[in-house]
């Protein structure tokens, strides 16, 4: 048991623990904050695993952008600040399937690797990743840029009621009352 292992174990325990809180807490905002902790712990594991660039991207995009977006969403949907009671659905199928998936995967991986050790490669640099991304993987990269663009346009179209087909957007834009009127017509 080396220091690396101990570090990984600690960060893993932190990640799993905060993930448990994410999926069980009764406070919506706290769920977002626990998610920050979880994602940060995972970023730390990336660092330990010598994937620096991915770790910083994780921190920048996930912790910096995605979680902020999620918190915005929580606020925009007027979530109650305190604990809410109706966040959960009946739990036993979720527990069964979630536990099954998690433990099953864990069992498979444990069975595959047992307690073996591997040498960590030397710490990676952004230069090598960049050579790969713009060398071998340049085509998926370009496709991904198109995907991002279309996601951007899609998000704009979805959130702007004055774009797109007239009927759907009017009902979408004016809230439930208009919706009812539309349906009764």
């Amino acid at each position: 048991m080396t220091g690396v292992d101990a570090l990984l174990l600690a960060l893993g325990a932190l990640a799993v623990g905060s993930a448990v809180l994410v999926v069980t807490t009764r406070h919506l905002v706290r769920a977002g904050l626990y998610l920050v902790v979880c994602l940060g712990a995972v970023a730390g594991m990336y660092l330990v695993l010598t994937a620096e660039l991915v770790a910083w991207v994780q921190v920048l995009i996930y912790v910096g952008a995605v979680v902020v977006l999620l918190l915005f969403a929580v606020m925009l949907t007027r979530a109650p600040v305190g604990a809410s009671d109706d966040l959960d659905r009946p739990g036993w199928p979720a527990a069964l399937i979630g536990g099954g998936v998690g433990l099953g995967l864990a069992a498979l991986l444990v069975d595959a690797y047992r307690w073996t050790t591997v040498e960590l490669p030397e710490a990676g640099s952004a230069e090598r990743i960049g050579a790969q991304v713009f060398g071998s993987w340049v085509l998926p990269f370009e496709v991904l840029s198109v995907l991002l663009l279309s996601a951007l346009v899609g998000a704009i179209v979805l959130s702007r009621p004055d774009i797109g087909s007239a009927g759907a957007d009017r009902s979408a834009g004016d809230g439930p009352a208009t919706e009812d009127r539309e349906r009764s017509r």
Partner: peptide
Amino acid sequence: PYVTAALLFGLGVY
């Protein structure tokens, strides 16, 4: 890290 990932995935499913 593998087991951590598996547990995280299970928690996500849950």
